[in-house]
Amino acid sequence: MTEIFSWPFAAEILPALLRGAVVTFIATIGGFFASLIIGAVLLALGRSKQTAIAWLGRGLVELLRSTPLLIQVYVLFFVLPDAGIVLEPVTTGILALGLYHGAYVAEAYRAGLDSIPRGQWDAIESLRFSRFAAYRYLILPQAIAPLVPSLGNTFITMLKDTPILAAITVPELMFAANDAGSQSFRYVEPMTMAAIAYLVMSLIAAFAVFLLRQRLGTRYA
């Protein structure tokens, strides 16, 4: 009679899971920064004065938002090599996370820019600010504070989306847990530990976002 949860076995697989958690962390951070950049690009496309480009941008956002991340991951994983672009699975995964969440980030950026009152733009015009100075000193400082909650949510959602990358053999936490399970035919410990690890990581991330919001809230209130 073996017990349901074996502590020695849990201790044995802990290093492998921790290595997986590091990859999860890297993928989340990488995906987050990729989504910040891709979001800006998608927003710029959608706001273009050329109708065709604007349609392309909006269509792309719609497509990325209404199809599953897993399929998008497969598209990058299978189609990029056919096009002669061979990337590490982690890089492919980061790119996929960046594209999928970039569409949501673009919407968040749009909301942030829309939250700036019309009078501010008029003031910029009448003070003859350059475009760069206007964004640097007036628009961005005001647009960033309202962005923090939604970007924070994006970060947490991204963390919880990283297990999907296991499907393309990225050696992140879920992949490590599955691997430990299939080697020993004991799934209780690795799966439970992985679940708890995700819970802890997302609670920490949520707390960090909360602190950041408070800080920004007092500065730009």
Binding site: L159, K160, P163, Y187, V188, M191, L203
Partner: peptide, 23 residues
């Protein structure tokens, strides 16, 4: 709510799929 929002859907599916049979 906190538990199921804090862990990802895929992790929950894997847990139900692999761990419940052992229980």
């Amino acid at each position: 709510v906190e538990f199921f929002r804090g862990t990802s859907a895929l992790v929950q599916l894997f847990w139900l799929f692999y761990v419940l049979p052992y229980l």
